[in-house]
Amino acid sequence: MRFAWTLPPAPDEAVAEAVAAEELGFDAVWIDAGGATPPPVEPAAMAARLAEPTIGVRIGVTAAVGVEHPVELAEQMAVADLAVGGRLVLAVRPVPGSGERLAEVLDLLLDSLASHPFRHQGPAWPTPANLAQNVFNVEQRVRVTPPPAQFEMPLWVAGRIGRDAAVERALGVLADADEQIDDLASWSADARRTHPFLARRIRRAMRWLPPDGEGSLDVEAAVTGLRIAQRAVDLDLVVVDHRGVTGDRVDDPGLRQAMMEAMARGVRPRLQLDRYPPGLEDHWVGESEPGAQDTVHQATRQESRGISHG
């Protein structure tokens, strides 16, 4: 399982946290305005701004779609992907009321992020439009340039709306934090039944509010909860949203840093094992987790018991 850290909206803080998350071994950082329209910072600008201070961390963005021309978004994301050396992951979320346009958005994005000339018939965005007033040297097919650095930029669908459209195109899904694991599990089982080959290609990601242990991350509850989600949905990526713990202390960077550490050293390694070899959890707690010993120790004990008996 991979882990992503959701960045705060202020650019300077976002840059600092992206560097910290990379140093702590997060697989990705995520730029998501959380449904705020318009977003405080355009995701393409924020993503590209991370080109220099980060080196290897993947950069995820959740972009609103359904109103503006998808070619515009494809261009922005292609340029951002080139700027960050092919590290971009694009999740799209239809703005309220635009769900029925999502299939067209996805098809147009897929064509625009490839490198071949295409013609898209519409209905919302015929491309090229071939308007009668445009007469000079117009094209019958367009090639959106430049193509991204990646041959296949990950294109995911965020939220519940349009999940069928994602499955039909073998696109990844990014579930919202308030979705029930049981619902996701039943969606996942359905996808495997109706699209047995495509479903295997679908990356499953989930936004996640970490459990609050009275002011700090509850590592035990986090490991237990994510283990259940991992097994039920074959979860590939957890996008951590610190607001689960920070709540009204959302502006406390020290608290966010402590949460990042707890995720990196307490939660993440445990989720990479389906079973703990005897003695490993004692070694982790004793050697490298001063300060987190009690809760983590309990968590691993309970986890390993549960696993060996289950």
Partner: peptide, 22 residues
Amino acid sequence: HRFWYDGWCPQPLVAIAAAAGA
């Protein structure tokens, strides 16, 4: 410019965001 055979940057503002970081 957009839709050029040579990839002429269609979104220079995004490229500028990256260069600003350097």
